[in-house]
Design a binder for these strands. Structure first.
Length: 969
DNA sequence: CAGTGAGCGAGCTTCCGCTTGACTT
């Protein structure tokens, strides 16, 4: 008997199908994609490593030929499939019937290279008949569809891997950009910008409680003397009444006076309108709506909803949970209708089977809607005992929604009632009340959709009005003036962002949940309650993207891409030309990503990118910037960290001033008894420190030591820190001092120095210990020694040393760092030799450059290409290099000094270069540094604000130092 | 976003979309 191997994507699906197919069939799964472009350097096959395009995983020079690798976690599955292949006579590739599914089938074919016949087929429904029918109608792999997928993959890779590095260099390392996440982030940012520009308007009205025929009901003032009362929709986002709005706007006093004037008035029914309505049930669940309702009704995050759904699917309780199709199979339709009839009766059944149009853009519809599995739906109650809590609640939701989708419309009436009364001042007031009566609940018996807006949900409930007719008297029980305010547009929640992305055709059901975690993991958004609040980093990134890669964050970008992919799938376009236009800019309207990125790397000024526009701070001289240590405010030389829990739209001028006043972390600890000067704790660019005196420059500063916390610092400890350096004693006639330095604690004796083991030793080290330390050679090469030494008969020994970044190997000529997977303890001599041979490199700075300034180095490296714009790129480079180092968790220790080894220059040395300064700068520095006067005193004479003068003085000093360095060569 | 002296050495971060465990807590 012949055997057939059927390969599907999901193991759970494989299990189900195997049951239906029975003997003669082996059903296995690929577990999704089996191959992909290499993710990182470690996955790139060695033979491509030297190619300039290797980091992309796509040979952009040869028609965008992709490199595919079987990722580590799929290797065992691929091996399993290969071994199963040996014993079968035929292979059936039954992956999903969409672009990705077709591609998986093709990759399976490529990777497995079966020697037996291969057929491609698709199931749209998992029932014995449907599967048997599919098996009888095989087709071949659709190469155009595969090509469309490959195009999509390449475009996403090129976008992500070309643009992300721009962010690393201009904003912060490890950030990312991508077709989906960058648009998602932009949506959050744009909404927050609206909120930041928003000005609220307030108005007043009257709310009354009326009674007629024994029924009490609320009604609100709608008109005054026939003119409509202003309400929220009459105001614009600036809090102004819209042009041409013919309305009355009541102020508080007027509203209260009117309430008084109406007290005791007679009211009559002026009009009564009744309109019938019907309401259709909602479409069965797809991934996005399931996530939305899971969030609204159950309070689940998108990820939690999907975890529960996955378990339900694996247990065979529901159909596949990653779908964009609202279609129910015939089997499901029958089951739902049967259940409606038995649970609610024929009256509740919609006369004909209901179908729902696909509603999302770019839907691929490879699966059916999410619904209870099987041809008979099990009721939630019957599963109570066997399901976990989350699963039960989610199943209940799915079951209700599916059943409701086949039920009858709800029918009811909406009534609008208007009441009139005359005020004592002669004005005529009209109140309106609305009611809603459900005559026949239909599907509402089973399911009411949740809402993001609880107020709207409340209004949705049934409201009963008394059975009155025109002219009937109505009694006012209570009349109250009430204030209202317009609200800014609401922030996105996880659910509403998914909805917005889906509406724009961006992202796929399988990725919605991970999009949300990506933008949170990258620090573009944080959750506050259910709301997603964009961070300042998101503002900086989005502004960069909008200003420099506008087309890539266009909301229609994906939509246009999808059209092009459809053309490729339909054979009307080719992958090559399309990608060449996108990447190289060939052809009309081609984007030309490669050149765009190159030119933007030159032109984008990181300082500009780091500065964020905040409308409410315009003209105040206060800037918001994102720096290495997070967002901060800046006004001249004053700075203050912006607390993480302050949402961008909450930062107004008042708050900003307050933050600057009590600069975060900055506080006065007390007074130094010795000098009488105040002791301040502050957060600086090199971390927290304490400062003696309020002047600029302060009398003294000292960094906090590793165990110290800025928030918990005491005056006592601060004074201790400020007491450094400590005089330890005299050795050989020279003074020994204990310093806390850039590279840690150390002892200094004349021009000689030694590291100390711990910071506490600064306070405890004795002269005897110091003497011993100075007797030992300097703690460099010899002191630490290699971790291990590998010896070889035929070559120099190789040493394994502890490095600043990671352990590394060296033989004196070549060095190579160990990578994450390589254990320094497990390493063998042979491996060490291989590693050094494979990627050993001679030291870069073999004692050539006097300056380690990154700015100089980068500018120099740019050489010919950058010569034209030498000034601008140099500035760029100077800032970005320290940024990338610092963010790695390295402290100030790795910051390069502009001029190694130079001491702060003396004024008399600098004086010679005042020619490089402007007139004002020169007068300022001469007065402060030359004559020792205070900035506060000099500033008014020069017509400057003190803060500005401080900044100028600092700039001037930098210029002078720069000039001095240049002169020294 | 403060100032406080030394120096061998790097390699990586990142995309979107298809799928589950294998890990630990």
């Amino acid at each position: 008997m012949s055997k057939i191997l059927v390969i599907v994507e999901s193991p759970a699906k494989a299990k189900t199908i195997e049951k239906y197919l029975g003997k003669g069939y082996i059903v296995e799964s690929s577990i999704g994609h089996i191959r992909d472009l290499p993710k990182s350097a470690a996955e790139i096959p060695p033979k491509f490593k030297n190619q300039s395009w290797a980091r992309l995983g796509i040979d952009v020079e040869h028609d965008f030929e992709p490199i595919y690798v079987v990722s580590a976690e799929k290797k065992s599955q691929v091996a399993k499939l290969k071994s199963l292949l040996k014993d079968v006579d035929e292979v059936v590739l039954a992956t999903d019937d969409d672009r990705e599914g077709e591609s998986i089938a093709w990759h399976l074919y490529q990777e497995l290279r079966p020697r037996v016949p291969v057929r491609r087929m698709v199931f749209h429904e998992i029932t014995p008949e449907a599967i048997r029918k599919a098996i009888q109608n095989p087709r071949s792999i659709d190469q155009n569809l595969v090509e469309a997928q490959e195009t999509r993959r390449a475009l996403d890779r090129l976008y992500g891997y070309e643009v992300s590095p721009v962010l690393w260099k201009k904003v912060a390392p490890k950030l990312s950009a991508g077709r989906v996440q960058s648009v998602a982030t932009r949506m959050l940012v744009e909404r927050e910008r609206e909120r930041m520009r928003f000005r609220s308007a307030t108005w007043w009205d009257l709310e009354g409680l009326f009674e007629a025929k024994g029924v009490r009901f609320p009604a609100a003032l709608a008109e005054l003397d026939g003119v409509r009362l202003a309400s929220g929709k009459d105001f614009d986002a600036q809090g102004r009444l819209k042009d041409g709005a013919k309305v009355v706007r009541l102020a508080e006093g007027e509203a209260r006076a009117l309430a008084q004037a109406l007290a005791g008035s007679d009211f009559r029914v002026a009009s009564l309108e009744e309109r019938p309505f019907t309401q259709r049930p909602y479409a069965p669940f797809i991934t996005s709506t399931l996530q939305q309702e899971g969030g609204r009704k159950l309070g689940f995050s998108a990820a939690r909803t999907m975890r529960a759904a996955q378990r339900l699917y694996e247990g065979g309780y529901i159909t596949y949970m990653r779908t964009d199709s609202t279609t129910l199979s015939q089997e499901a339709m029958d089951a739902a209708r049967k259940q409606v009839r038995s649970l609610y009766g024929d009256a509740y059944l919609h006369p004909a089977p209901r179908t729902y149009d696909k509603k999302s853009k770019n839907a691929q519809e490879a699966h059916e809607a999410i619904r209870p599995a099987g041809s008979t739906f099990r009721t939630p109650e019957s599963l109570r005992a066997e399901l976990g809590d989350d699963e039960f609640r989610l199943y209940d939701l799915i079951w209700k929604r599916t059943v409701a989708s086949q039920m009858a419309d709800a029918r009811g009436r909406r009534t609008a009632l208007r009441l009139e009364g005359a005020a004592s001042d002669g004005r005529r007031a009209t109140f309106s009340a609305s009611g809603k009566t459900i005559d026949f609940p239909g599907f509402l018996r089973a399911y009411v959709e949740g809402s993001d807006d609880p107020e709207a949900a409340l209004e949705d409930r049934e409201t009963i009005l008394p059975d009155v007719t025109r002219g009937d008297a109505v009694e006012a029980r209570k009349l109250e003036a009430k204030s209202h305010a317009t609200q800014p547009p609401a922030r996105y929640t996880e659910a509403s962002l998914v909805q917005a992305l889906e509406a724009a055709g961006i992202g796929r059901p399988s990725t919605y949940a991970s999009i949300l975690s990506t933008i949170q993991d990258r620090g573009y958004a944080v959750r506050r309650g259910t709301a997603l609040v964009p961070t300042w980093t998101a503002f900086a990134t989005s502004a960069l993207m909008e200003g420099n890669f506008g087309r890539l964050v266009d909301y229609d970008f994906t939509a246009r891409m999808e059209e092009d992919l459809d053309d490729i799938a339909g054979g009307r376009k080719r992958r090559g030309p399309y990608l060449r236009a996108f990447y190289f800019g060939e052809g009309e309207g081609g984007l030309g990503l490669k050149n765009l990125v190159e030119s933007r790397l030159e032109t984008i000024d990181p300082r500009e990118v780091a500065t964020i526009e905040v409308p409410r701070l315009e003209g105040s001289g206060i800037e918001v910037r994102v720096g290495r240590y997070g967002p901060f405010l800046k006004r001249g030389e004053e700075t203050a960290n912006i607390p993480a829990d302050l949402a961008p739209d909450e930062l107004d001028l008042e708050r900003a001033e307050e933050l600057l006043r009590t600069a975060q972390g900055e506080r006065v600890l007390g007074t130094d008894p010795g000098t009488g000067l105040p002791v301040l704790a502050r957060a600086g660019r090199y971390g927290p420190y304490v400062q003696l005196g309020e002047d600029t420059p302060p009398a003294k500063t000292a960094s906090l030591l590793p165990g110290d916390k800025l928030e918990a610092l005491t005056l006592e400890r601060a004074l201790e820190l400020l007491s450094l350096p400590r005089f330890v004693g005299k050795l050989d006639g020279e003074e020994v001092w204990a310093y806390n330095g850039r590279y840690g604690p150390y002892l200094k004796k004349g021009s000689d120095s030694r590291n100390l083991g711990s910071h506490e030793q600064l306070f405890t080290v004795t002269l005897e210990e110091a003497e011993r330390l100075f007797q030992q050679p300097k703690a460099r090469r010899g002191a630490k020694g290699p971790l291990r030494v590998f010896e070889y008969p035929d070559r120099e020994p190789i040493e394994l040393r502890e490095g600043r970044f990671a352990p590394y190997l060296t033989d004196g000529q070549l060095n190579a760092s160990l990578r994450s997977g390589e254990d320094p303890l497990e390493l063998s001599a042979a491996e060490a030799r291989d590693i050094l041979g494979e990627r050993g490199k001679p030291p870069k700075n073999a004692g050539k450059r006097p300056s380690r300034s990154a700015g100089t180095a980068k500018a120099a490296a740019k050489g010919k290409a950058g010569a034209r714009k030498a000034a601008a790129p140099a500035k760029t480079a100077a800032r970005k290099a320290p940024a990338s180092r610092a963010a790695k968790g390295g402290k100030a220790a790795t910051k390069p000094r502009a001029a190694a080894g130079s001491k702060p220059a003396e004024w008399r040395e600098l004086q010679a270069y005042v020619g490089v300064l402007s007139d004002t700068e020169r007068r300022l520095v001469t007065a402060t540094r030359g004559e020792g006067r205070k900035v506060e005193e000099v500033a008014p004479e020069l017509g400057l604000e003190v803060a500005k003068a401080r900044g100028m003085a600092l700039q001037a000093s930098k210029k002078l130092n720069q000039a001095l360095r240049e002169a020294r060569g």
